[in-house]
């Protein structure tokens, strides 16, 4: 805890790890980690003022509504909650968001999306899970499709991905599938993360002043 940045940072940040450590372990630079702290602070003090991100705070930031239940947001929250404490601390926030950095390896994005869609955590994406995901998407959007259309979409996609035809998509099949269908991972890259120091310039001004 010797340097200026850790004094500025560490004691206040729940789940505190030096920004330098987080930067070296993730796709972020030290400046980007520091800029992310500004976003983290805003989210983690939005409802329950304890410096941790609770699910309602996550939903509020995503939907401008803290009560909006959503299967996808639940899944993302649970995957961000690496220590399984029911809340997201700063370390978890940075490590998880790093997967969404445009520079993060595609293998990380592929693995994260697989976990996201493996709803029951069996190590496979099953057809029932895919159906559930499609129905949840339709539910949150204004898109209305008949049951038979939903079945056709699910069957068609599933058979493309389940290349060995054993009724479940394993991680290798998923990897092959996203190679052929890169648009399926489109949401896994956030250009914002590359510009994060521009979005939260106040921290950078302080960092530069410090140097």
């Amino acid at each position: 805890m010797g340097c200026a940045s850790s004094r500025q940072f560490g004691a206040r940040a729940a789940g505190h790890v030096e920004p330098e450590v987080l930067a070296s372990d993730t796709s972020f630079t030290v400046n980007e980690v520091e800029a992310l702290y500004e976003l983290y602070k805003r989210m983690s003090f939005s409802i329950i003022k304890d410096g941790l991100i609770h699910k309602e705070e996550f939903q509020l930031a995503l939907f401008r509504n803290s009560k909006k239940a959503n299967l996808f947001a639940d899944r993302v929250f649970d995957l961000f909650d690496l220590k399984r404490t029911g809340v997201i601390d700063f370390e978890e926030f940075v490590r998880s968001l790093s997967v969404f950095h445009p520079k993060a390896p595609t293998s990380e994005k592929t693995a994260f999306a697989f976990k996201l869609y493996d709803l029951r955590g069996t190590g496979y994406i099953e057809k029932e899970e895919l159906r559930e995901l499609v129905l949840a998407l339709l539910d949150e959007s204004d898109l209305r499709l008949s049951d038979s259309t939903v079945e056709a979409i699910v069957d068609n996609t599933f058979s493309q991905a389940d290349s060995n035809g054993d009724g479940k998509i394993d991680p290798e099949e998923w990897e092959e599938f996203v190679k052929k269908n890169p648009a399926a991972l489109r949401n896994m890259s956030l250009p914002y993360l590359q510009d994060i120091t521009m979005a939260f310039p106040s921290f950078i001004t302080r960092s530069e002043a410090k140097d």
Binding site: N70, F72, V76, L145, I153, F177, A183
Partner: peptide
């Protein structure tokens, strides 16, 4: 034809999966 729609592409458009909104003020 709707049956050629890719389910995973469709899912990736979910609002709950589009974390870009976290960065919009």
């Amino acid at each position: 034809r709707p049956s050629v729609m890719n389910a995973f592409e469709l899912i990736s458009t979910s609002q709950g999966l589009n974390l870009g909104t976290l960065f919009e003020k």
